[in-house]
Write a protein that binds this DNA or RNA. Structure first.
Lengths: 256, 256
DNA sequence: CTTGCCCCCGACGTAAGGTCATGGTTTCCA
DNA sequence: TGGAAACCATGACCTTACGTCGGGGGCAAG
C-alpha cells in the first residue's frame, strides 16, 4: 500500500499520516526503491486504533502510551477527560443560552441582556445617540462592577425602571437631563433635581440599600465608574448628578 | 492606569492586553515618558466589551467589526455561531457518551465497546495473549469495515455468540483453534471443523446472510481483512478457516 | 516528450494567548 | 542613598492537529 491508499482506506489525509509519523505514534514503514512509503495491514490497524482514541478526544501525545501499555493505567486519563468534557459542554451550553437570549430579545451582544431593555427603551424615546452610548458603556462597566451575582439584583431594579408607567417618567427625565447645556439656567437644573427625587427617589433609594452595594463603593472600579460619568457629562449634568446623589443619601438615612 | 492595573481590573493578563493590541481590537494608548502605556477608562470599557463578546465564543477577528459597526449586520454571525455551538455540543456529548460506556464496562478504549465483551470473555477463558490480540485487531478492522451502521448488526451477532451457554462452546472451540500447531494432525483439524460447523454453523450462517454483507465482500478493505487473518494464522489454522468458510457457504445456500 | 497524477520534504499558518529571556524603570524600605 | 523587589517593554518560541503551499522527483499513458 502506498500512502494515499492507506489514507483513503482509513478516511484520513496523507498529511495526517505524516503528522502521525512525525509525532511518533505511527511507525515509519519501509520504503520502495523510489523512496515511497509502503504500508502494511499492521499500519492500517494501528492507524484505526489511533483514530478510535482520537475520536474520543484523547490528545495524540497520550495515544502512544495507551496503545502500547497493556493494562488499565489509563483509567485516570479517561476520567480526567470525562470531567473536562463536562466542563466544556457546560461552557458551550452557557454560551448558547446567552446567544439564544440575545437573539430572542434582539439586544446588542456586547451588553448584558438583562440591562439592555432599559436603554433600549430610552433609545426609542428621543434621547440623543451620545447619551445612549453613555448608557451602554455605563452598563458594561456596571455589569462588571457588580459581577455575575449582582447583575440579577440590578436587573430587578431595571425592571422597576422599565415598567410601563414608570419608563415614560424616566424617559422624560432622561430627555431633560440629556438636553442640559453646560451653562443651563439654575432654575432648570433645580426643577430636574426636584422632579427626579420626587418621582424616582424611593425606587432608587430602595435599590442603593442593597447589601452588596456598600462593599463596592470602596473599590477601585467604583471610583472609575464615577470618573467615567464625570468625563462624559457636562458641568450642569455633573451638578445635577451630585445633587441627586445628596438627596438620595438623605432618603436612605444617615450611614451608621 | 498602567497595564497591570487595567489587567487586574478587567480580570485578564497583561499578555492578553498586548495580544489585543497586536491584532488591533484594542487601540494602543499613549505612553508616559518612560515608555509605559497609560490607559484610560475608555480602554477599560472597550476591553470589557471585548470580553463580553469573547465570552460568547465570538472569534477575536470578528470582534472589531461588531464593536465598531452600529447596527445588526451581525445577526448572521450570531446565528452561524449558534449552529456551530450546537454541532460542537453534539460532538462532545457523543464523546462523553462513548467514554461513559467504556468506563462502565471497563473495556479497552481503542476497540468498539459493542464488540469488546466478546473477546473479553475469551481472554478470561484460557486463550493465548497472541490470539487475543488478533481478536482485538480484527475487531478494529471489522468495525471500520462495516461502518457505524453495520456495527450495530455486528453487536447483535456478538450478543448471540457471547450468550451464556454459547460462549463456553465458542471459548472451547477457540482454545482448540488457538492451540493448533502449524503441522497439526489432520484428524484434529477435521474434528474442529466438524464441531464448529455443527454447533455454531447456523448462528454464523444467519449472520452472513445480512444484506450489507455482500457489498463489503468486493471492497478493498475486505480483502485486507482476509489478508490480515492469513498473516496472523499458521497453515493449519488457515486451513481450518478455509474449510469452515466452505461449509458455511454450503449452509447459506448457493449464491444467485 | 509531455501531460497528469502520485510521492517526497520543508516551511509557514491557524486561535488565543502562555512562557521565557533580556533589559530598562519605578518604588519601597532600611 | 543605595539596593532589592516589583513592574514595564519588546521579541521569540510554544501549544493542537493538522491544512496549505512550494519545489523537486517518479511513473505510466497518450
Amino acid at each position: 500500500m502506498r500512502s494515499s491508499e492507506l489514507a483513503s482506506l482509513a478516511d484520513v489525509t496523507v498529511r495526517t499520516l505524516r503528522h502521525y509519523h512525525r509525532i511518533g505514534i505511527l511507525p515509519e514503514p519501509g520504503r520502495d526503491p523510489s523512496g515511497y512509503r509502503r504500508y502494511t495491514i499492521q499500519d492500517l490497524v494501528r492507524l484505526l486504533r489511533i483514530k478510535r482514541l482520537a475520536a474520543l478526544g484523547i490528545p495524540l501525545d497520550k495515544v502512544a502510551g495507551l496503545l502500547d501499555s497493556e493494562e488499565e493505567d489509563h483509567h485516570d486519563l479517561l476520567s480526567d477527560l470525562e470531567h473536562e468534557l463536562d466542563a466544556q459542554i457546560a461552557r458551550l451550553t452557557r454560551q448558547k443560552t446567552m446567544l439564544g437570549i440575545i437573539r430572542e430579545h434582539r439586544t446588542l451582544p456586547d451588553v448584558p441582556p438583562e440591562l439592555a431593555r432599559f436603554f433600549e427603551a430610552f433609545a426609542l424615546s428621543g434621547i440623543s445617540p451620545a447619551m445612549n452610548r453613555i448608557d451602554r458603556e455605563q452598563s458594561v462597566l456596571l455589569a462588571h462592577l457588580v459581577g455575575e451575582a449582582g447583575i440579577e439584583h440590578l436587573a430587578e431594579f431595571y425592571e422597576h425602571i422599565a415598567a410601563p408607567g414608570t419608563v415614560e417618567v424616566v424617559a422624560g427625565l432622561a430627555r431633560r437631563f440629556d438636553r442640559l447645556d453646560a451653562d443651563a439656567d439654575p432654575a432648570v437644573t433645580d426643577r430636574l433635581v426636584e422632579d427626579f427625587t420626587e418621582r424616582l427617589g424611593m425606587i432608587v433609594a430602595d435599590f442603593t440599600g442593597w447589601d452588596g452595594g456598600t462593599d463596592l463603593i470602596d473599590g477601585k472600579l467604583y471610583g472609575l465608574f464615577e470618573q467615567y460619568l464625570r468625563d462624559a457629562l457636562n458641568p450642569a449634568q455633573r451638578m445635577v448628578v451630585a445633587r441627586i446623589t445628596e438627596r438620595l443619601k438623605a432618603l436612605t438615612g444617615p450611614p451608621a
